[in-house]
Design a protein around this nucleic acid. Structure first.
Lengths: 224, 224
DNA sequence: AGGATGCTTCGATGAGGAACGAACCATGCG
DNA sequence: CGCATGGTTCGTTCCTCATCGAAGCATCCT
């Protein structure tokens, strides 16, 4: 009967199937409207609205009103990290699929995590950036190296747009068990990848599929 | 309505207050009996037994029968990591205490995480071990360095007892946001600290309090 | 203005599940 | 062998909370 942060409150929010589906959908990174989330969760609009209210009150979601639309999104990287942690346990504990399907393979290679790239490809990218000293890593902390500004400017990414979020952040990859790059820089890189059409998002999934020339371009820019 | 690992199932297990209290208690690292957990959760024995059954079925707990006692413990480091992640969000989102209490301070400095030491002290310890090249760090992966065996043997810790769990593992510290040492080595070090009576466990808390001479001894052995 | 769309609030219904007492196994002790 | 102690199972009660239809706001379009 001890006190402490109300973990049960948070967990029970995620514990409802409808809400879990919504959060899962929002792990794609793009903010979604209430009706989209209702569809995603398989419930009626009033029900979804009620759930969204609870998630808001619990601090897991943020909302941005644009006209008559209300765009809901995850409250931050920490929430996204928690979801990935729970997903990891569910993966490990759940019915072991003997043979991972093709989509699982794609997810393992490259997927969207909240607003940045995750998967093997993202992990090797971070490795290279650190090896090239573009980024400097100290445990979980990642900072910009001396050549970072010019390096990213050449690609068309401005690392100096000052947000409230950290520019760099390490995010643990549940499939590879190593870190990839999160933060605004991670988000900007994902934007770049999609804007240049090097890769496309798999519909209704967090998987990211690179086209052959897109992959080459990506490797040339980030892995050399 | 998409498929995937059943995150709602896992989260709802943690989402019940009674079960959350039990899991929290087990974060102390020591396995507890059903009646102890019932007391901890503030429910009757039958209720506790039912909850424990569900947690077992969910794969979050393991049990060891010893005589007429049944000792329940967390299923593994991954589960412990998930709980810490949820705790972190609950911390961040919950009612911001304007002034952190004294116990919070102690928790920030040194606490037990499942079966190893966490907090500022644990983080600096890992830093030093890596700096001295006793441990070699590559992202989330931590391996033994060349001098590890002799170094730990001198302290009375055998790093070669081969378990099913990894010897070294990085575990993210929610208070400091950097990694500390988990795995069997992390557990062995915590054992050492308590066996040497350098520190004692705060009753009914995960806080670890070092005595002044104990702290000196700890620093001499691990931080020099 | 009038109508259409997106979303929230209200109220009623229903099901899942948390709780406990009582009875039932298992182990240890004298 | 009885008796106590630690745990689980069973059955019942009760309450929370998810769900949806209908009605109510708000915003945009023409």
């Amino acid at each position: 009967m001890r006190e402490g942060p109300d973990i049960a409150r948070i967990a029970s929010l995620v514990g409802d199937p409808a809400r879990a589906n919504m959060l899962n959908a929002l792990m794609g990174g793009t903010a979604l409207t209430a009706s989209e989330l209702a569809l995603e969760a398989g419930v009626s609009l009033p029900t979804a609205s009620s759930h969204l209210g609870k998630l808001m009150e619990g601090g897991l979601l943020t909302v941005a009103s644009q006209g008559r639309h209300r765009y809901y999104g995850l409250a931050g990287p920490q929430v996204a990290g928690m979801i990935e942690a729970i997903t990891g346990v569910a993966e490990a504990v759940g019915p072991k699929r003997v043979r991972p399907g093709p989509r699982d393979g794609a997810m393992r290679v490259a997927r969207v995590c909240y607003d940045h790239l995750a998967g093997e490809q993202a992990v090797t990218m971070l490795d290279r950036l650190v090896a090239k000293n573009v980024l400097v890593r100290d445990e979980q902390e990642i900072r910009l190296g001396p050549s970072a500004a010019s390096h990213f400017a050449a690609i068309g990414i401005d690392v100096y747009t000052k947000p409230r979020r950290p520019v760099c952040r390490a995010c643990l990859d549940w499939s590879v068990r190593r870190s990839h790059l999160a933060g605004t820089l991670g988000a900007a890189i994902l934007d770049k990848i999609l804007a240049e059409k090097w890769a496309r998002r798999e519909k209704d999934s967090r998987a990211v599929i690179f086209s052959p020339p897109g992959r080459q371009a990506f490797e040339r820019v980030f892995l050399t």
